[in-house]
Write a protein that binds this DNA or RNA. Structure first.
Lengths: 129, 129
DNA sequence: ATCATTAGTTACATAAAGTATCTTGGTTTC
DNA sequence: GAAACCAAGATACTTTATGTAACTAATGAT
């Protein structure tokens, strides 16, 4: 019964939990991944929307603002008309990306087996939702 | 870098997106982490609840069932009274855990800097929510 | 003069998660 | 021998998160 070293890691106010819960929300990882795909150059709001066709405008805004608050992305406004706002990843996020990509790689390797398990779990249902 | 191979990874019906969105929901990673902390032995429902004090009974049930469907945990019911149901991680999840732990490690390393950024972003507000 | 443009904001509607109460059937307590 | 208790849920109801649709601003093109 000696797990005293990480005993508090699971507590509701744990900062690690807090950081990961904001990162592992519905859209953050995907937005980071998409910004990374652009190859270290800034990306406009509209372009992000195009690359993530199923995100709502509202949630893209909210997600980007949260990512900015936590220092994952920078937001640069150019005083033009029509407006131009560019988003880019920070150095912090580049240090995180290998871990995200590791997750993606793992998912790619395991997707067939996982989908198989889903079918076994509910043979009639359409798996996935 | 040649990213054409993952060009479609961002599409709504991408299986990788699907897998990661189910894994990176509000509770799944934390439940997996908590089961892992138990050290490769099965854990009862009630014990999980104790270790994650802020998860609701309903969401613990739902999360565990989804994890079971995708083959991350096994569920063993012992026909006793009061009921005993034990959950354990599968081999699949053990292959995933290093990546989860890498994320946790990254969060631990970066938490101070991130919290600093949050304070800068909204100096008056209580950061975190 | 009207329309199209981008990056939003806002009001309203739906989906996801949280809360509280109920169930089950043996075992202990009174 | 009836009442209360236990673990693992299920269910109805409430709150929060997310989605949808309409609106705004300033300018250039038609």
């Amino acid at each position: 019964m000696d797990r005293t070293t990480v005993e508090d890691a699971v507590f509701p106010d744990c900062p690690i939990r807090n950081i990961l819960s904001r990162l592992c929300d519905k859209w953050s990882l995907l937005v980071i991944f998409t910004l990374d795909r652009a190859g270290r150059k800034a990306v406009r709001f509209k372009e992000l929307q195009r690359e993530i066709p199923d995100i709502s405008q509202k949630m893209l805004t909210v997600t980007l603002r949260t990512l900015e608050t936590d220092g994952y992305v920078t937001r640069t406004v150019y005083p033009e008309v029509p407006p131009r706002v560019e988003y880019a990843l920070t150095q912090r996020t580049y240090s995180l990306l290998p871990h995200i990509n590791a997750l993606i790689g793992w998912a790619a390797e395991n997707k067939d087996a996982i989908m198989e398990d889903r079918k076994k779990a509910c043979p009639e249902e359409i798996s996935g939702m």
